[in-house]
């Protein structure tokens, strides 16, 4: 296929006005890169988002019963917390490498690894939230005829929400960052671009993908803060009332403070 001379000429002409092309100069910041590879960036971001969301969602679904188990049986708490801590200690590259023979080179490797990492933080925080529910509240609900399931979902879970959401925020932010390492099996979202940028010594690609990754973590965190505020309106009312009454006017008792934390 031959390129018409006029096209080549016009390319030259259009390139000529800008004294130096940032792509050729391999600058760190390059608008031309974002313009010409926009679709690539969008695709990588979309992959990054779905891997993160799927991992955290599965992590939450697994962590909740584990936390319940750890709370119900005194003997289970140690092993559950110990096992999740051990999983957390395994470096991410080793984790993905160990999962590769199980799932082959696929997105399942990355998602499974990220789920296992998120468990540590999620189980701990859910457990802490549930254990911080004041006994009086539990007794009162039981006295009002709440069964165990209703007690859990209508009384204990809402009270445990602040701790749960704090854990969810930490887990989500770390998962966004750790997804990049999925690039070793080709499913790293923006990490794929960082990887290919490294191979090709393409500075703009690496910096743009890295910045997007941090932005993604920030946005996810802000969204979760918004969700938490929407889900726990009572904590806000409490705070404004306290502010009105004069901060520190009433010293909280130890148990109250624990419940709030």
């Amino acid at each position: 296929m031959s390129t018409p001379m006029s096209t080549v000429a016009s390319m030259y002409v259009s390139a000529a006005p800008s004294p130096r092309n940032c792509l050729q100069a391999n600058d760190w910041i390059c608008g031309e890169y974002v313009r010409s590879r926009g679709q690539e960036l969008v695709d990588a971001t979309v992959q990054h988002v779905w891997i993160t969301v799927l991992s955290v969602a599965i992590g939450l679904l697994v962590a909740f019963p584990l936390a319940l188990l750890a709370r119900q049986r005194r003997g289970a708490a140690g092993p559950v917390l110990g096992l999740t801590t051990i999983l957390y200690t395994v470096p991410s590259l080793a984790m993905f490498a160990l999962l590769t023979p199980v799932f082959g080179v696929s997105a399942a490797v990355v998602v499974t690894g990220l789920v296992l990492y998120s468990l540590t933080i999620l189980v701990r925080n859910i457990l802490a939230g549930l254990q911080a529910v004041p006994t009086e509240v539990r007794e009162a609900a039981r006295g009002m005829g709440y069964g165990p399931l209703r007690l859990l979902f209508q009384v204990e879970l809402p009270l445990a929400l602040p701790a749960l959401m704090a854990g969810l925020r930490i887990a989500t932010v770390s998962t966004v960052a750790m997804t990049t390492i999925g690039a070793v099996v080709g499913f790293g979202g923006l990490g794929n671009l960082i990887d290919s940028g490294m191979q090709g010594f393409f500075k703009a690609e690496v910096l743009t993908a890295s910045v997007l990754c941090v932005l993604l973590a920030l946005i996810a965190d802000l969204l979760l803060v918004g969700l938490q505020r929407a889900l726990t309106p009572w904590t806000r009312a409490d705070r404004t009332r306290r502010a009105r009454d004069g901060a520190g006017g009433i010293r909280r008792t130890g148990r109250e403070r624990k419940a709030v934390a």
Binding site: I194, D195, V206, A209, V214, A217
Partner: peptide, 18 residues
Amino acid sequence: ANVGRAVPTFAVLVLLTL
């Protein structure tokens, strides 16, 4: 601590290498 969590290690390593 929060910032440290949000920044991907891999990205920092590659940025520093380049």
